[in-house]
Amino acid sequence: MKIQIQSIEKYLPGTAVHSEELESRMGIAKGWIEKNAGVQIRYWANADETVAAMAATALQKALTSAGLTAENLDMMIYAGASYDYPIPHNAGRIKKALETTAKFPCFDVDSTCLSFLNALDIAHLYFQRDTLRTIAIVSAELSSRALNPNDPKTYGLLGDAAVAVILTQNKEGYEPLAPYFINNPEGADLAWIPTGGSVSRGMVHDTPEESFYFRMDGKRLISLTLRELEPFLDRYEQLSGMTPAAYDFVIPHQTSRFGNEIFAKQYCLNERQLVNTISRYGNCISASIPLGLCDLVHQQNDLSGKKILLIGSAAGLSLGALTLKF
C-alpha cells in the first residue's frame, strides 16, 4: 500500500512574538529564552481566534492546494491537545467552520504531542480496509492561552500553529513502515494542567489562577525521556531495520533546544538530516512534527527514494515513531 501526500499546508496565527519581547515582559536577561529553550520567535493567536478556526484555515489551504473541496474527503481526523469546548469534539467544530454540508465521518485523536503520529497511524489502518480514498488530518494548537507568564521555562517555549495534510491511496507516494508506540505511566503527572477537567472544574471562588496554566517538571521529564529513549530506539531499529543515522531525514517533536541537541549528538545526526524547527516556531505540541514535515515537503522538489523518520515524545510519558519510505 502506498499513500500520497496530496498537499500539506500550515497556518501561523497572529503575529510573530520575538523572545526579546517576552524577556522584557518577564524581566529576565536578554537571550535567556533562546539559550535555554532555543526559541527565537513563535506565533501566538489573536484574542478572537479559535482552535477550530485555525484548523479550518489550514485545512482549507490544503484542500485548495490539492484542487479539492471538503466534499471530496472520506474522513477527517483532528489530532491535537487544544480544544475550544469540552463538548462537542473539535473535528465537528472544524467541519462547521469549513461551512460544508458533507457528512463524512470525523473524530479527535488526543495524545498531546504525539497526536499527529497516532492519527497518521490510524489513517493508514483505515486505508488498509480499502474503503476510504482520501483522508485529511489536521493538528491545531492554541497553547498560548494556557501559559503562565511567571514561568519562563514554558512561557518562552510554546507556540501556536495549525497544519493540515491531505492523504490519498495512490500508486506513488510513501509506504508506512514500523509504527511503534509505548507509554510509561511513571510520567503521567510530569506535564499537566491541573484545572478544567472532572477532578477540578475550577468553579470554586478560591481556585488559584495558576492552576489553569500548563506546568511541567522539566528535569524529571527529561530524565525519564532519556532513560526510555535508548531501549525504545533499540527496539525500533529491530522493527525498521535502520538506525536513526540511516535515514535521509529525521523529524522529531520539538521538545526544546536541549532535547534536539542531545538527540542529534547521541544518534550521530547531522544538520541536513535533522529537521529542526524549534527556533522559528517553538514547541507547538501536536503541530510540531507536521510543521517539520510541511517545511520539508515544500523545500524538497522530490522525495522519491527518501526515508523519513517521524519520532517524538508526549506527556504521559509516551514515545512514538513511524517511518515513511518514499
Score class of each variant (00 low, 15 high):
Met1Trp: 02
Met1Gln: 02
Ile3Gly: 08
Gln6Met: 11
Leu12Val: 10
Pro13Ile: 11
Thr15Glu: 13
Ala16Arg: 09
Ala16Asn: 06
Ala16Val: 06
Glu20Pro: 04
Ser24Leu: 14
Arg25Asp: 08
Met26Pro: 03
Gly27Arg: 09
Ala29Met: 11
Ile33Val: 10
Gly38Cys: 08
Asp48Tyr: 12
Thr50Leu: 10
Val51Ala: 07
Ala53Asp: 10
Met54Val: 01
Ala55Gly: 08
Thr57Phe: 05
Leu59Trp: 05
Lys61Ala: 08
Leu63Gln: 04
Thr64Glu: 15
Leu68Ile: 05
Asp74Gln: 05
Tyr78Met: 00
Gly80Gln: 02
Gly80Lys: 00
Ala81Val: 14
Ser82Phe: 12
Tyr85Ser: 03
Pro86Leu: 08
Lys96Pro: 01
Ala97Lys: 03
Glu99Cys: 14
Thr100Ile: 03
Thr100Met: 04
Pro105Glu: 07
Cys106Asp: 06
Phe107Lys: 05
Val109Tyr: 01
Phe116Arg: 03
Phe116Ser: 06
Asn118Glu: 11
Asn118Gly: 10
Asn118Ala: 10
Ala119Ser: 01
Ala123Phe: 01
Ser139Lys: 01
Ala140Tyr: 02
Glu141Thr: 05
Leu142Gly: 10
Ser143Arg: 12
Ser143Ala: 15
Ser144Gln: 08
Pro152Thr: 00
Tyr155Gln: 03
Gly159Ala: 03
Asp160Tyr: 06
Ala162Gln: 04
Leu167Asp: 00
Leu167Lys: 02
Leu167Thr: 00
Gln169His: 04
Asn170Cys: 13
Asn170Arg: 11
Glu172Leu: 09
Leu177Ser: 11
Leu177His: 11
Leu177Phe: 10
Pro179Ser: 06
Phe181Lys: 05
Asn183Met: 13
Asn184Asp: 12
Gly187Val: 03
Leu190Lys: 09
Trp192Met: 10
Ile193Met: 04
Pro194Tyr: 00
Pro194Leu: 05
Ser200Pro: 01
Val204Phe: 05
His205Tyr: 06
His205Gln: 07
Asp206Trp: 02
Thr207Met: 03
Thr207Asp: 02
Glu209Lys: 09
Ser211Phe: 00
Asp217Ile: 05
Arg220Asn: 10
Arg227Ser: 12
Glu228Trp: 09
Glu228Phe: 08
Leu229Cys: 07
Leu233Gln: 03
Met242Lys: 12
Thr243Leu: 15
Ala246Leu: 14
Tyr247Met: 13
Asp248Gly: 07
Val250Trp: 10
Gln254Ile: 06
Thr255Arg: 13
Glu261Ser: 15
Ile262Met: 15
Ile262Ser: 15
Cys268Asp: 15
Leu269Pro: 12
Ile278Met: 14
Ser279Trp: 13
Ser279Ile: 13
Arg280Ser: 14
Arg280Trp: 11
Tyr281Phe: 14
Cys284Thr: 15
Ser288Gly: 08
Asn301Ala: 07
Lys307Cys: 07
Ile308Thr: 01
Ser313Ile: 12
Leu319Pro: 00
Leu322His: 06
